[in-house]
Write a protein that binds this DNA or RNA. Structure first.
Lengths: 208, 208
DNA sequence: ATGATAAATAGAATTCTATTCTAGAAAATT
DNA sequence: AATTTTCTAGAATAGAATTCTATTTATCAT
């Protein structure tokens, strides 16, 4: 189970890579098994041996992407010194990951709707839940210490990631020319304004 | 079957409604023409007479939804007095529309990825562009007058709608219990902080 | 090493769906 | 009323996903 895994693992990876390229180009519905077969060099039998059906190829790509990103995020988060750095780390992780894996990111952002209905829906739910727990674990102390606002937990993610995600979606769809990289600070600052307990009690410059 | 139905386009509407229900329940890929036929009471021939193929049923629902929302948004925006009210109107429009049409909203948020690859991609692009122009028209004077920050145009939408959209997605997917309605002010305030040319601090009540 | 067992590959055969086709009914138009 | 157009219908077809059976390749126990 050691050497064969490397071998079969290669075919598996070839299939996934070919499938991703097809999915990006034609969408999941628009790509046929035949296209994936052509591009990967695998046979029908091999395709079905490894994945069982087309949907499972897609959901594997999807979940692996989520996990890959999630790992990068949590890594950076754990290295962040204070709350402000943590917020910056979240925004940066997002930007760095999508910049490094634009196709994969495009696929994930475009395919969530299909995964939700498929067999892998439960796995997606589990992955979401896990990430939520870990995020919560990071947030809690900062909320307790008063460096982050005390908001309902489900609001942090939207407030922190919402803008950069929406922008990224537009970028990956070709609607805007510049990558999110260019606006790192705008997104991080907005996120911090939204969830940080801004002690910044600015003295009134123009007092009445 | 009744007779005056055809005249009124009732059959068409029945098909769309049945299709939406199926799409929500099983996803677009997961619903068969047969399911839509069953649920709508139309025949195969009738289905294809009205829409040509399954994808066009989906894209019709999608584009009509976008337009319906867009209209509501622009209406409210035109009624907004100042910049702050406009931002609030955008957030409120979003929240009100998805709250009033949760299934439709769910469908749109989940199906964008598929429409992008389909025949209606151009129409989607056109709709996006049109909405962008109108938004720009509203923003410009406020930017010029200094009540809104002067940011690259493509940033306003993500900063204003990003958080509420991400939250809404989570709500429609059943990941959070409360509708976005509950957090209107959080989202509107965050949006305003992000794009408004804020003065030093914000008092609890406004004074002229 | 060697036969036994499992994993992987292959492509033909089958099944399941979307779509097309032909025909007829209902409405609109003349 | 005749004719043209729109709509409805379901059988026939085409195309793609999936299953099946056979074969090859690797792993393991002896």
């Amino acid at each position: 189970m050691s050497k064969s895994q490397a071998r079969s693992g290669q075919r598996r990876r070839d299939i996934l890579q070919a499938a991703l390229a097809c999915f990006i180009e034609h969408g999941v519905e628009g790509t046929t098994i035949e296209m994936i077969r052509d591009r990967s060099g695998a046979s029908i039998g091999s395709l079905y041996h490894h994945f069982g059906n087309k949907e499972r190829i897609a959901s594997t790509l999807f979940l692996q992407g989520l996990q890959d990103f999630s790992q990068a995020l949590l890594q950076r988060l754990s290295e962040a010194g204070d709350a402000r750095a943590g917020i910056q780390a979240m925004v940066d992780s997002y930007i760095d990951w999508v910049s490094a894996n634009p196709d994969w990111a495009r696929f994930i952002l475009q395919t969530r709707g299909q995964v939700i209905h498929g067999e892998a829906a439960d796995k997606l739910t589990a992955a979401n839940r896990e990430q939520f727990q870990k995020l919560r674990a990071w947030l809690s102390p900062h909320v307790a210490s008063g460096t982050l606002k005390n908001l309902p937990l489900e609001l942090y993610r939207p407030l922190i990631i919402g803008p950069v995600q929406d922008y990224t979606r537009a970028w990956l769809a070709g609607r805007v020319p510049h990558g999110p990289d260019r606006y790192r600070d705008v997104f991080a600052t907005a996120a911090w304004q939204a969830v940080g307990a801004n002690t910044a009690f600015k003295p009134a410059s123009e007092s009445p």
